[in-house]
């Protein structure tokens, strides 16, 4: 039985798991999620797929906003770039998904770099405003470039296929999204154990001191934008494969605000926080829908106001978290973990 948290070397301090139990629990969870589709209904499978996609994009936003301290309102735009690139590459060029998904990510990373350039001169508010402009410019482009994006009518995407395997239904696409999500989360988690990730955190905490200590702020800010947009682009690509039909209306500015909300509610600068935030914000409308379905018999008027209730609850939750728990759900999670880690002998 453990009675304390002793770390005797730097390697130990940097390790992902500080005891064998979390490793076992995580492996169990991953295995459980692997077999889950065999027992799940199509509805919940669809919800799970959307949660996983949201987790990838939220982790991407957290890289730039939570870890590097650059506020981005461009998430919806980058998701759109990834999704419409996939539509073009898979639909028009007929490429398999093993090529399409990385290419979509890379193209989004390049677009992200273009809009990341203002971040070299601008900070805080000004950067938020620049990414806001990026959102509207991308939205204008995708809704007017008709022969590439289908314009306002949207465009349909063929089922993901590779070497004769066609992932037609929700179950098939689950086995595409799930491993990609796990892989990217491990990548992101490990990123912050490397020199690059630590440079990001140094820029967030104090950019001028970071530069004095030899961090190339210029390079790392751009790199952070690129990695973040890559993750968001991959999420957008998976979104296109999962939804099968996309239009510019799927990527409104409120989506970007939803993602910022995920990162705030989950916890800035925390991968596990991105997971919690993504689950919470994706489940919120589903839960409200289930609740109104159940109560709809008594109050038929309830169905009409589901959309405003969702927006209102979202706004309220964000405000309450910011005022009462600015470190998000991840902070609560850490409290709980710390309590149980040394459970019977906490002193």
């Amino acid at each position: 039985m453990r009675c304390g948290d002793f770390r005797q070397s730097y390697a130990e301090d940097m390790s992902l798991f500080d005891s064998p139990l979390p490793r076992v629990l995580l492996a169990g969870l991953l295995a459980f999620l692997l077999v889950l589709p065999q027992f799940s209904t199509t509805y919940w499978l669809d919800v799970l797929n959307r949660i996983f996609i949201a987790i990838i994009a939220a982790a991407g936003l957290n890289v730039v906003t939570g870890y590097t301290g650059l506020i981005s309102l461009g998430t919806a735009a980058f998701l759109a770039v990834g999704a419409f690139t996939t539509a073009a590459l898979a639909g028009k060029a007929g490429l398999p998904f093993v090529v399409v998904i990385p290419l979509s990510g890379l193209l989004t990373a390049m677009i992200g770099l273009v809009f990341g350039i203002p971040s070299l001169r601008l900070k805080g508010l000004y950067l938020a405003v620049a990414t806001l402009a990026a959102h509207y410019i991308v939205e204008f482009t995708v809704s007017h470039w008709d022969h590439m994006t289908g314009g306002v009518n949207g465009i349909s995407i063929p089922a993901a296929q590779f070497a004769g395997i066609v992932l037609k239904d929700d179950r098939g696409i689950y086995y595409l999204i799930y491993p990609i999500m796990v892989g990217l989360l491990f990548f992101t988690k490990n990123l912050f154990r490397t020199k690059t990730g630590k440079a990001f955190v140094a820029i967030r905490d104090q950019d001028i001191s970071a530069e004095v200590m030899g961090v190339d702020v210029f390079r790392y800010k751009l790199l952070s934008f690129a990695i973040s947009s890559f993750l968001i682009g991959v999420a957008g690509s998976l979104l296109a494969y999962q939804a099968r039909i996309i239009s510019p209306e799927n990527f409104p500015i409120t989506l970007a605000i939803d993602y910022l909300g995920m990162v705030i509610i989950g916890g800035l600068g925390s991968i596990v926080g991105s997971i919690f935030g993504a689950i919470f914000i994706t489940l919120l409308p589903e839960m409200l829908r289930l609740a109104t379905d159940a109560l709809g018999n008594q109050w038929p008027g309830l169905m009409v106001i589901v959309a405003p209730i969702k927006t209102g609850v979202f706004g309220l939750v964000v405000i309450l978290f910011l005022i009462f728990e600015p470190d998000g759900m991840a902070a609560r999670w850490n409290h709980i973990k710390a309590y149980w880690k040394l459970y019977p002998f906490s002193y």
């Binding site: 301290g69 605000i257 969702k310 706004g315 964000v318 910011l322």
Partner: peptide, 17 residues
């Protein structure tokens, strides 16, 4: 700054609702 931006965005969602 991010919290200040986010709180006005939250307020905007709430008022919109």
């Amino acid at each position: 700054v991010i919290s200040l931006i986010m709180v006005t965005l939250g307020l905007s969602s709430l008022l919109k609702a």
